[in-house]
């Protein structure tokens, strides 16, 4: 749901669920406020991430049961969307969802990292480094408009996905 399939494949196809399983099981945090100075720090941060992740899943299910009488995964897409929105958008925050917001951010961190470190994800955003030999660095294509004041934003469908893998 965080990164769905649209004009490019979504998180599911990119194997993000498996990635999150792997990272959480191996206690690798992708975002941490901790200062990692030693292996003990790394282990503590990894344990902390794992605990917060599992507690967050429980929270989400508890919230889902109280709102809709069933586990999150058993909810309809609309219900899931409602549950997500109240932890994802400031305008929809409720005082009772504070721990859910932290969990959502963590889930989103894992998802974004899991997606944009795959070939699918990098292609979807047009990462130029998928091509590893360039005859030269092209530079700016608008030399007659150095301030770039007159660029038109292309419709999102028209955004050409940049170079193919070499």
């Amino acid at each position: 749901m965080i990164i769905p399939e649209d004009d490019s494949p979504g998180a599911k196809k990119a194997g993000v669920a498996e990635f999150i399983d792997f990272m959480v099981a191996n206690r690798v945090p992708v975002s941490t406020s901790r200062d990692i100075r030693s292996t003990d720090d790394a282990i503590a941060a990894g344990n902390d991430a794992q605990n917060r992740f599992l507690a967050g899943l429980d929270w989400m299910n508890a919230r889902s049961r109280s709102e809709f009488g069933r586990e999150f995964m058993d909810c309809t897409p609309e219900q899931q969307n409602t549950l997500m929105e109240e932890v994802a958008y400031k305008a929809k925050f409720k005082p009772t969802t504070e721990s859910g917001r932290a969990f959502f951010q963590m889930m989103r961190d894992y998802t974004v990292v899991g997606y944009y470190t795959t070939e699918i994800g990098l292609k979807s955003i047009g990462y130029p480094g998928l091509r590893v030999v360039w005859p030269k660095m092209p530079g700016c294509a608008h030399p007659d408009d150095p301030e770039h004041a007159n660029l038109r934003e292309p419709a999102s469908r028209d955004i050409s996905t940049q170079p193919s893998k070499n």
Partner: peptide
């Protein structure tokens, strides 16, 4: 960020 570049095609800015 630079709002005037919003939505522009990806550019090879960091290939060097």
């Amino acid at each position: 960020y630079l709002p005037r570049l919003l939505g522009q095609p990806a550019t090879p800015d960091n290939i060097a």
